[in-house]
Amino acid sequence: MIDPLAISQTPDRVNQLLSEERRRRRVTTAKIAAVLVLIFISLWVTEMLNGSRLAEGLPAIGTIMSEMWPLDFSRWKQWIGPLIDTIAMSIAGTALAVAMSVPMAILAARNTSPHPAVYQVARLILNTLRAIPELIMGIVFVAAVGFGMLPGVLALGLHSVGMVGKFFAEAIEHAHPEPIEAAQATGATRMQVITHGVFPQVFPYYADVTMYRWEYNFRQSTVMGMVGAGGIGTELIGSLRILDYPQVGAILLVILGAVTVVDTLSNYLRRTFQ
């Protein structure tokens, strides 16, 4: 059995190391404390710690929920078309996002970007796309190309590039360098190294992000209905405007069902891509 005192080092050296270890731990503790303080301040200024205000709000939520009852599915036949439109919009938007994200990711990953300046510009573009909410993009595109699903797809797709492109680029940066080196050793070109050394490694992760984004875009495309992009979201806003809560509840339930279907399907697809 090893005895902690049976050590070939001098006591001074051991104590020196132990105090260095204590110092490192104090630094870690201080960092964690700083984050906790930040979280506490955020909870405070947003009134999340205002218990009485939260307690007063609960009955109001209960009232709206009770006004939805009984749910009104009488117009279900009119919802089928918009629901299919919404699904189509989410698939088209995600496809647009992935098609633009793959080249953007190559430019925005430190290890594959052709030049540091290109890297910075690519990052800036991704940040900008992420910073503009899809709702604002939707309004801009409705103004540009008119009502319908087209502005919705463009808004969803472009906004998604901001996040999907960033995740794709980070995956490239975290790819294992060994297979890349092996590809370079065969005399492959830069593009060949990317397509045969990097992509096979990151593909399962890309599939994960894409499927997650598809599900997100489906939920988001219902919101796009608000700015006139069509789909089930337009029906939802219509019912909400005339304060027809039983119909609002019914549409929300339909959306929940569709989200579950999309989620199940994307999980299945993700598994097959592994």
């Binding site: 090893i2 005192l5 190391l17």
Partner: peptide, 18 residues
């Protein structure tokens, strides 16, 4: 922690503790 340092010392890695 003293025990862990003694174990590292046993395999001649005391100086690489951090």
């Amino acid at each position: 922690r003293r025990l862990a340092l003694a174990c590292l010392d046993r395999v001649s890695l005391f100086d690489r503790a951090f």
